[in-house]
Design a protein around this nucleic acid. Structure first.
Lengths: 249, 249
DNA sequence: TCTCTTTTGAGAGTCACTATCATTTGACCT
DNA sequence: AGGTCAAATGATAGTGACTCTCAAAAGAGA
């Protein structure tokens, strides 16, 4: 049975399994390969110089291409006509693939917007922090490391802003964003648990990750809604420090 | 222009309005009238004693009846066959109304499960707390007052457990639950803001409500998943105290 | 009982998604 | 080159949640 390398897990899978993420790694499928997938992003799929060894086989490169084409088409149409007014069929037409192919690459329309590639990198960075550091401080540092890279690159920054605007404006996307958040939270929870000698499903660990991610989300929303020119990192720092102060406001 | 008294606001409404809740109160429509709407709940729609004056006209009473019938039918079928395996048409048939009527009463299938009637009461109780009390303590007290009432009544408790189980198991419902949460958060935010001399959309206020509600949600999930016999109030207290300690774990 | 308004039901349509199957296409081997 | 196999694609036909519209039914008030 083929079971399609291309297909990430559906949100409606595993409806009643309280266990951690299954063998088929959730979150990012790592298949993207190149940054700057945004509209017009020319990226660098295999351009390590003229005549360099191709990164992978033709098949793999085409998959990355198709994925980016669909995403770029979608972002373009969403920006022009709005999310709800853009049927998947039109995205498929714009990306020059069949509707079925779109669903093969992205299990839901929302996932075209919400495929997070940062989770793995953040998890690695978190594991790299000293084990005796206060968990909340570790999170702040990791956030700083990860985001400063993204915000520095105009293309990545623009894509992030557009995505957060969609999160802000479209209920369906916002809803999935929460879900993604709590999934990422589980990864974080595992790391924090290991470090503080608890199990990942201990109440304290879950409360910690829920609060942290919810605050990160809210701070990001504040940023796109109210202060897009201000420094996101500053806003996040203010927010997480408030959390660290026990929410004494 | 009729504009249907029965119809609560859709989740997809107001896609780009960053302003607070509009004039048409979001959250609960207050149309339910009686508690214990769960399966078999006989409640007390107008039973203030034999021969007492009817609460309202026949029309209003029928609306409440229909609403409860749909909800009861849905809960029954969801428990028997599962949420995804139960089409709205079958709920309509079971409740003996047409499919269109179901959608007139509940804008989405998820809303059949997630109509919160507690928001208004909690908001009132929060406003009643002394203004100089620490916000987080106020929230804890309000939660205690509200929940102890619900948990004491077996019918209400059973309905709450069933609802939280659906939130736990069904991604679509969980997603809407987050949305409901952040909507309720806005109400809370308004009250906290007024009390601490800020605007409702100040970063500190938003971070506060986001953290609080997310923790309440996570603690409740912990309760249904891990410790349904334990006291929910104790779990919530532990969680909110951890939050108050600045998440030092 | 008559009229007005609200509520309901019926029907057709849209769109996100699923399942299936034949066709194409890159990968690998000789 | 040519042939074989597995994987990716496209076309087609569903299902199910919703939306819109309009005519019939039923409570409210005179």
């Amino acid at each position: 049975m083929p079971d399609n390398d291309v297909m990430p897990p559906r949100p409606s899978d595993a409806p009643a399994s309280p266990a951690g993420p299954g063998p088929g790694a959730p979150g990012s499928s790592g298949a993207d390969g190149s940054r700057a997938a945004g509209p017009g992003g020319q990226g660098a799929p295999g351009c390590h110089g003229p005549g360099a060894a191709p990164t992978q086989g033709l098949r793999e490169r085409k998959k990355v291409q198709t994925r980016q084409a669909i995403r770029a088409a979608a972002y373009r149409l969403f920006a022009a006509d709005g999310y709800d007014a853009t049927p998947v069929d039109r995205i498929a037409a714009e990306a020059d693939v069949s509707p079925s192919t779109v669903f093969r690459y992205f299990p839901t329309k929302e996932d075209i917007v919400l495929t997070d590639e940062y989770d793995d990198r953040m998890a690695d960075r978190l594991r790299a922090r000293p084990a005796d550091e206060a968990p909340l401080l570790s999170v702040r540092m990791v956030l700083r490391e990860t985001l400063s890279g993204i915000l520095a690159d105009p293309a990545q920054r623009a894509e992030m802003v557009q995505r957060e605007e969609l999160v802000r404006d479209v209920p369906a996307i916002r809803a999935r964003a929460y879900e993604t958040m709590s999934l990422t939270g589980r990864i974080l929870g595992g790391i924090i648990a290991a470090r503080t000698g608890r199990t990942a499903d201990a109440l304290e660990v879950r409360v910690f990750t829920a609060a942290v991610f919810s605050v990160i989300h809210e701070a990001t929303m504040f940023w796109v809604e109210k202060a897009p020119e201000e420094d996101l990192l500053t806003i996040l720092d203010r927010s997480l420090r408030l959390l660290n102060r026990g929410l004494e406001i």
